[in-house]
């Protein structure tokens, strides 16, 4: 098979990182920060943990371009879709008419 045998991934160290980050996440919640800062911190740690799992456990780091393009393309498409949802659902699209006073 042309697929190279996967280089040894040190599962334990990745696990430790994940565990520490999860503990940090739970800890941050009890610090009673302002919601926006809390949200930013949590989303940040979630993204870091997701990248850890994806690149090491799922060997995305060692994959060829085809699979990276597939996953990357899907993520870009997903974010575009949610951004286009933003004005209608998050904002009130007709408030500007009512504000005409």
């Amino acid at each position: 098979m042309t697929d190279a045998a996967h280089p040894k991934v040190n599962a334990i160290s990745i696990f430790l990182w994940l565990a520490v980050l999860t503990a940090a996440e739970v800890g941050v919640v009890y610090l009673h920060l302002s919601p926006v800062v809390l949200a930013a911190l949590l989303v940040g740690t979630a993204v870091v943990k997701a990248l850890l799992v994806a690149s090491y456990f799922m060997h995305l780091k060692f994959e060829g371009k085809l699979i990276l393009w597939m996953v990357g393309g899907t993520m870009i498409l997903a974010t575009f879709f949610l951004l286009m949802l933003w004005p209608d659902i998050v904002g009130d699209p007709w408030a500007w008419v009512m504000a005409e006073g």
């Binding site: 009130d92 408030a95 500007w96 009512m98 504000a99 005409e100 006073g101």
Partner: peptide, 12 residues
């Protein structure tokens, strides 16, 4: 149903 444009203004 808010009829006062001012309510919508701040939201803007």
């Amino acid at each position: 149903w808010s009829l006062d444009p001012a309510d919508y203004a701040e939201e803007d």
